[in-house]
C-alpha cells in the first residue's frame, strides 16, 4: 500500500465528517436564522421601502420618492422632537453618568457589599411603566410626597409633568433614578479591572483619594466609560415608556420626543410611510453618534496597555 492511498482513504471520511458538520450547523442555526430573516432583516429592508411610500395600513401605499424626506426638512414638530430628545439625552446621560461614577467609586473604595449593589440595581429591574406610574404618584401636585416636602421646606409646589419647562427634565430625572445603579455597576466593573498596585503607587506618592480618582481612576476607566456612554446614549434616545404613561408628549409638545413622535405618527395617524422615514433618520443619527464617539474617545485603546 502506498502512502498516498492511505492518506486518501483517511481523507475521505474527514470530508464526509466536514459535510456532516455543515449540515448540523445549518440545522442548529436554522430557527434563529428564520427569526433573523423574518423579524430583523426583512422588516429593516421593508422599513427603508416604506419610507419612500405613503403607506397608511389600509391601502397598499404608493411610491412617493423622496417626498417624506422633503417633508421632514419642513416639519417643525420633527425638529422640535429632535431638540426635546437632545435635551432629554443631555440631562439624562450627563447626570446619570456623573452620579453613577460617584456610586461606582463608593462601591469600589468603601461599600463592596453585593447586597448594596443589588439594592441599587432594583429600579433597573422594574418595568418602565411601573417606574413612571410610581413617580407620577410621588410627584403629584396635590398630595404627592415630593410636593409635600417642597411645601414643608417653604418652596412652592411644582407641576412636574404639567409645566412645559419642567416636564422633560422630570422625565429625564426619573430615568436617571431608574438606570443609575445599572450604569454604576458597569463602571464599578471597570474600576475593579484597574490593578491595585497603581493605587498603591499613587498612595505612596502622597496622592489624596480625590487626586487618585482624577489622575488614576478616571483616565484608566476611559475605555469602559466610553463604551458605557455609547450604550446608554443609544438607549436614552429610545425613551418611550415614561412619556407614553405620563405626559403623552405634552404639555403642547414639551415632551414629544422622537420615539413618541414616530409612534404617534404611525399608530394614531396611520402615516407609516412618514413614520418610517423619521425612524430611518433616527437610525442614521444613532449610527453617526456611535462612530463619532468611538473616534473621539478612542474606546478601543486603554492606557493600561
Amino acid at each position: 500500500m502506498t502512502l498516498t492511498s492511505t492518506a486518501r482513504r483517511l481523507r475521505r471520511p474527514m470530508i464526509r465528517e466536514r459535510r456532516r458538520e455543515t449540515w448540523y450547523a445549518i440545522a442548529f442555526v436554522a430557527p434563529a436564522a428564520i427569526g433573523f430573516l423574518v423579524f430583523y432583516l426583512f422588516p429593516a429592508i421593508r422599513g427603508v421601502w416604506l419610507s419612500f411610500t405613503n403607506y397608511d395600513l389600509f391601502s397598499s401605499g404608493e411610491f412617493v420618492g423622496g417626498a417624506n424626506y422633503a417633508q421632514i426638512v419642513d416639519d417643525k414638530v420633527f425638529w422640535n422632537a429632535l431638540l426635546v430628545t437632545a435635551e432629554y439625552v443631555v440631562i439624562n446621560i450627563g447626570l446619570q453618568t456623573a452620579v453613577a461614577l460617584l456610586m461606582a467609586v463608593l462601591m469600589q473604595r468603601l461599600a463592596k457589599s453585593l447586597v448594596i449593589r443589588g439594592i441599587l440595581l432594583v429600579p433597573y429591574m422594574v418595568s418602565g411603566v411601573v417606574v413612571a406610574l410610581l413617580w407620577q404618584w410621588l410627584l403629584d401636585y396635590q398630595i404627592g410626597i415630593v410636593n409635600n416636602a417642597l411645601d414643608f421646606v417653604g418652596l412652592p409646589r411644582q407641576s412636574f409633568f404639567g409645566d412645559p419647562a419642567l416636564a422633560i427634565v422630570t422625565v429625564a430625572l426619573i430615568n436617571v433614578w431608574k438606570s443609575m445603579g445599572y450604569t454604576a455597576l458597569l463602571l464599578f466593573a471597570g474600576l475593579q479591572a484597574i490593578p491595585k498596585d497603581v493605587y498603591e503607587a499613587a498612595a505612596i506618592d502622597g496622592a489624596s483619594e480625590a487626586k487618585a480618582f482624577w489622575r488614576v481612576s478616571l483616565p484608566l476607566l476611559r475605555p469602559v466609560l466610553a463604551l458605557v456612554l455609547i450604550v446608554s446614549l443609544i438607549g436614552s434616545f429610545q425613551i418611550f415608556d415614561t412619556i407614553a404613561v405620563t405626559t403623552k408628549g405634552g404639555p403642547v409638545n414639551a415632551t414629544r420626543v422622537i420615539y413618541y413622535y414616530i409612534y404617534d405618527l404611525a399608530f394614531n395617524r396611520y402615516d407609516f410611510g412618514y413614520a418610517s422615514a423619521i425612524a430611518l433618520v433616527l437610525f442614521v443619527i444613532l449610527l453617526g453618534i456611535t462612530l463619532i464617539q468611538l473616534r473621539i474617545t478612542r474606546a478601543n485603546k486603554s492606557d493600561l496597555a
Binding site: F36, P43, R46, G47, L50, F237, A279, L286
Partner: peptide
C-alpha cells in the same frame, strides 16, 4: 457578523414593518 449587525438597528425601525406583518 450579519446577525450582530441587528444590534445596531433601533428597535422602532423594525417594529413598524413587524406590526404590518
Amino acid at each position: 457578523t450579519i446577525f450582530l449587525s441587528a444590534l445596531m438597528v433601533p428597535p422602532i425601525f423594525t417594529t413598524l414593518p413587524n406590526f404590518i406583518l
